[in-house]
Design a protein around this nucleic acid. Structure first.
Length: 555
RNA sequence: UGGGGUGUAGCCAAGUUGGUAAGGCAGCGGGUUUUGGUCCCGCCAUUUCGGGGGUUCGAGUCCUCCCGCCCCAGCCA
């Protein structure tokens, strides 16, 4: 690889290019290290795209590593979902995935080594005492009475910890650093704590588990990770990350921090997402309103759109909140090029063509994707009675309305010009039928006299159509920042009760025949066929609406 | 009154020997159009880079003081 030609697109790439040019590294190794305690979300996707993307760009590798150091919170269900999501995004991680738990033995040996060097000790302070001894942000901490035990005693005690001779909370292994450090992370941090629960991979083999700070650098070192990329909140931990590796004298990776993703109208913390699931605000981790990768997938987002999004938001160190509209732009951009077009009427109202023969049908041609000729055409049945969108008719139109209204001519997409001649109302004054006359010479939607018709609307044949369920999704929260609440309230206060609205629409027969899953329902939006669909009943999730300059302008 | 970060348009974000503010999204205006979609064109920081001083012929870039915001006191990660 010719490093001279490489251009950095962010500060991390700059660092990498420097390291490559200087010869510090011949090739790079990054890693994506999720804890399997929840489902991946769009914020993780940013990290995945960054880490795997870097490896691809610079010809290195990226390890998928499960940071499974806390058996109380972790589960194989999460491991499987994570692998599935990373794979779906289009990344591969070589021969096998890595697990922190595979290094427990090695980390134990290294801990013993630190004890022998007088750099770690077993402490019996209770959690409450330890908090008091730690001091505060402004005051230094106090040294533990166990801090200066002999190496022999520490070795013995650590052995006992490992053998389960202490109960949870009775002892921890601590690094001996500096209780008066202005960086609280350096005030003799915990390296091992006792957790007597079953680990999803090591079972009951261990009852002591390494803490994040102790484990993470070790994992990176063992795997030969050159650039260990994490989020901003770990900046304060870097001195500790470095300290452990320096004491051990082992291969030393470089930790680099970047700003995590925040998105308007959504929450991103695992705790909050878990609450949404557990308290049934949503149907599950893959509810299409969730910002999880599985949720976005079910909603109809594609891997390409998510990667494009990650590309566009960039990578920096400043806290930021990206507008949701950028994500929507990315999926529209992708689907516009690829999605099968189809006509579906969300809120049907009958339209009768009074001058069209009864008991007669004809087949019309419709283009599958105007952005892609190769997608070909399909046939649509047309007859005297159709369904059109209730919203495409106005008894009394505003000046900018150029759809169906008495006396006006519009084009039925792919079909004919029709002129509205009247309508019928029920006792309550609701329009229930619209009457039109068609121009037989306008078949296909053209007229030979060159007359212009401003409005074009979609339709389906009244008989040759199917019922479809449409799940119309909107933001899960009503506020850009869901955490913007009064004292004593939490983010669930801002849940959008209209984030899911069900509609029963009418769709082309074609929907039954095709294997496509992503659609653009003409003039409405992008939809994805949902897995809940059954033979007789098709269900579609609204991925995102089309841009609408009519409704936006406020009629 | 501790430590670590960060501050360029409504939102992201380039800007690296100081040389006269990229790009994208959003928004606005117009054109094309058998989707009010797409596409195309134009506008959108020049009393300007959080603010004040300073160095310099010249400062977003250097110095200095100040301000705002974020993170840290788990035996979570």
């Amino acid at each position: 690889m010719n490093y001279e030609d490489l251009k950095a697109t962010n500060f991390i790439e700059e660092i990498i290019i420097e390291d490559l040019k200087s010869g510090k590294h011949k090739s790079i190794c990054t890693r994506f290290p999720p804890e399997p305690n929840g489902y991946l979300h769009i914020g993780h996707a940013k990290s995945i795209c960054l880490n795997f993307g870097l490896a691809e760009k610079f010809g290195g590798r990226c390890n998928l590593r499960f940071d499974d150091t806390n058996p109380e919170k972790e589960d194989t269900e999460y491991v499987e979902s994570i692998k599935n999501d990373v794979r779906w995004l289009g990344f591969s991680w070589g021969e096998k995935e890595f697990y922190a738990s595979d290094y427990f033995e090695k980390m134990y040996e290294w801990a013993v080594e630190l004890i022998k060097k007088g750099k770690a000790y077993v402490c019996h302070l209770s959690p409450e005492e330890m908090r008091k001894y730690r001091g505060t942000l402004n005051e230094p901490g106090i040294e533990s009475p166990y801090r200066n035990r002999s190496v022999e005693e520490n070795l013995l005690m650590f052995e006992k910890m490992k053998n389960g001779e202490f109960e949870e909370g009775e002892a921890v292994l601590r690094a001996k650093i500096d209780m008066s450090s202005p960086n609280i992370n350096m005030r003799d941090p915990v390296m091992y704590r006792i957790i007597k629960s079953n680990h999803h991979r090591t079972g009951d083999k261990w009852c002591i588990y390494p803490s994040y700070d102790w484990a993470h650098g070790n994992e990176d070192s063992i795997e030969g990770v050159t650039h260990s990329i994490c989020t901003l909140e770990f900046e304060d931990h870097r001195p500790l990350y470095d300290w452990f590796l320096d004491q051990l004298g082992v291969y030393h990776s470089r930790q680099i921090e970047f700003a995590r993703l925040n998105l308007t109208y959504t929450v991103m913390s695992k705790r909050k997402l878990l609450k949404l699931v557990q308290e049934k605000y949503v149907s599950g981790w893959d509810d299409p309103r969730m910002p999880t990768i599985s949720g976005l997938r079910r909603r109809g987002y594609t891997p390409e759109s998510i990667k494009a999004f990650a590309e566009k938001i960039g990578v920096s160190k400043s806290n930021s909140t990206v507008e949701y509209s950028l994500l929507e732009y990315c999926i529209r951009e992708d689907l516009n090029k690829r999605a099968q077009r189809c006509m579906v009427v969300l809120d049907p109202i009958k339209l009768i063509i009074t001058n069209y023969p009864e008991n007669h049908i004809e087949y019309l041609e419709a283009i599958n994707n105007p952005e892609d000729e190769s997608k070909g055409k399909r046939k649509i049945i047309f007859s005297r009675e159709l369904f059109v969108e209730r919203d495409d008719f106005r008894e009394v139109p505003d000046p900018n309305f150029f759809r169906l209204t008495p006396g006006k001519e519009v084009r039925l997409q792919h079909a004919y010009y029709v002129t509205c001649k009247g309508f019928k109302k029920d006792d309550e004054g609701n329009v229930i039928e619209i009457y039109c006359e068609y121009d037989p010479d306008s078949r296909g939607g053209w007229s030979s006299d060159g007359r212009k018709v401003k409005g074009t609307i979609h339709w389906v044949d009244a008989k040759a159509s199917i019922d479809v369920e449409l799940r119309m999704y909107d933001h899960l929260f009503t506020k850009e920042n869901p955490d913007d609440v009064e004292e004593g309230e939490d983010f669930t206060k801002n849940i959008n009760t209209n984030s899911l609205v069900l509609k029963n629409g009418k769709g082309e027969l074609f929907l039954l025949e095709t294997d496509e899953v992503h659609f653009q329902f003409l003039r409405v939006g992008y939809f994805k066929k949902d897995e809940d669909s059954k033979d007789g009943k098709l269900i579609f999730n609204k991925t995102v609406g089309l841009k609408d300059s009519y409704n936006k302008k406020g009629k």
